[in-house]
């Protein structure tokens, strides 16, 4: 009896000691493969793109490996370009803000609607949402381009049929209608994630709390903002961060639209600009500098988010 007791005590203390030692090595062993991948394929390239941005890096330099440092000249050229301030930056930032707000607000609205439905309709609707989600960005973009096609698209046809439009309109040439279509595309592709995540969160909010509030005479809006939103703080944090990440990086949705690959300058954003300068003009250094600026912009925004999230976590 006594022996047994000491043994258990021993077993309890001994592993703890070795576990303490293991605890310093083991996490690093577990992390090693992932960190190696991230270091080689994300961090080192980031350093490299910065190094490229300080060079006159063209096709010849890529093939031969020659170096020709030009300091901050690329940056000076970008920052001095009126295109950046009047077109590219507003398009990038403005669109990201609109699409994040649009995606999150719409997705949340859909989640609230779904939460109020019976099982049958909820299943039907969420299956439909899944279908929208599954549509790859490239496919989705072509479908929207087809719907809004000037001569043969269904959108113009219907508007003309209803007498709302006399002649076909080319929606891709105007900066605003161009981005309206991109916005539609991005929201269509992005809201399902928000809706599904927020819905799951909503269903987890205790019913009693809502009923109590209703008894107290709180209206629907008040119930939403004073009970649901605080309960789902973390869910919203995640959803907003991820939407920002995804929406800032919109490339194919712009590049594949008519005029989006560079011929319509008024719709350029940072990503497409960087790509066409690099691979179209063979100015990889200049393109890298644009990419670095885009990265810095995103990192500044993330920094704010990350602080908020980590502060919450460390409590």
């Amino acid at each position: 009896m006594t022996q047994q007791l000491t043994e258990t005590r021993l077993r309890k203390t001994l592993p703890r000691l070795s576990r303490a030692r293991a605890a310093t090595v083991r996490p690093w062993l577990l992390l090693a493969p992932a960190l190696a991948v991230l270091a080689v394929l994300l961090l080192w390239p980031l350093v490299r793109v910065f190094l490229f941005s300080l060079q006159d890096y063209g096709l010849r330099e890529i093939t031969t490996g020659e170096l020709s440092w030009i300091g901050l000249e690329n940056y000076a050229e970008i920052l001095a370009s009126p295109e950046l301030w009047t077109v590219v930056l507003p398009n990038t930032v403005g669109f990201a803000v609109l699409s994040v707000v649009g995606t999150v607000a719409f997705g949340t609205g859909v989640a609230v609607l779904l939460a109020s439905l019976g099982t049958f309709w909820r299943t039907v609707t969420s299956s439909a949402i899944m279908a929208a989600w599954a549509m790859p960005a490239v496919t989705g973009t072509y479908v929207w381009v087809w719907i809004f096609d000037a001569d043969r698209g269904v959108f113009n046809d219907v508007l003309m049929g209803l007498g709302l439009l006399d002649d076909p309109t080319n929606w891709f040439t105007d900066r605003w209608s161009f981005y309206a279509i991109v916005l539609l595309n991005v929201i269509h592709h992005g809201f399902p994630f928000v809706a599904v995540t927020v819905l799951a969160g909503l269903l987890g909010v205790p019913k009693e709390m809502l009923e109590a509030a209703e008894m107290d005479g709180a209206g629907a809006f008040r119930r939403f903002f004073s009970i649901i939103v605080p309960q789902l703080r973390q869910v919203f944090a995640v959803v907003i961060i991820l939407s920002t990440i995804w929406d800032f990086k919109v490339f194919a949705q712009v590049y594949l639209m008519p005029g989006g690959a560079g011929s319509n300058r008024s719709v350029l954003n940072l990503g497409v600009w960087s790509y066409v300068e690099s691979f179209g003009q063979n100015r990889y250094g200049f393109g890298s500098a644009i990419a670095v600026l885009l990265t810095l912009l995103l990192l500044a925004i993330t920094a704010v988010y990350v602080r908020a999230v980590l502060a919450e976590e460390e409590r």
């Binding site: 000037a150 001569d151 002649d167 076909p168 309109t169 080319n170 891709f172 040439t173 005029g259 319509n264």
Partner: peptide, 8 residues
């Protein structure tokens, strides 16, 4: 004489 679609 052209079409608006022809713009792109």
């Amino acid at each position: 004489y052209s079409s608006t679609g022809a713009t792109t």
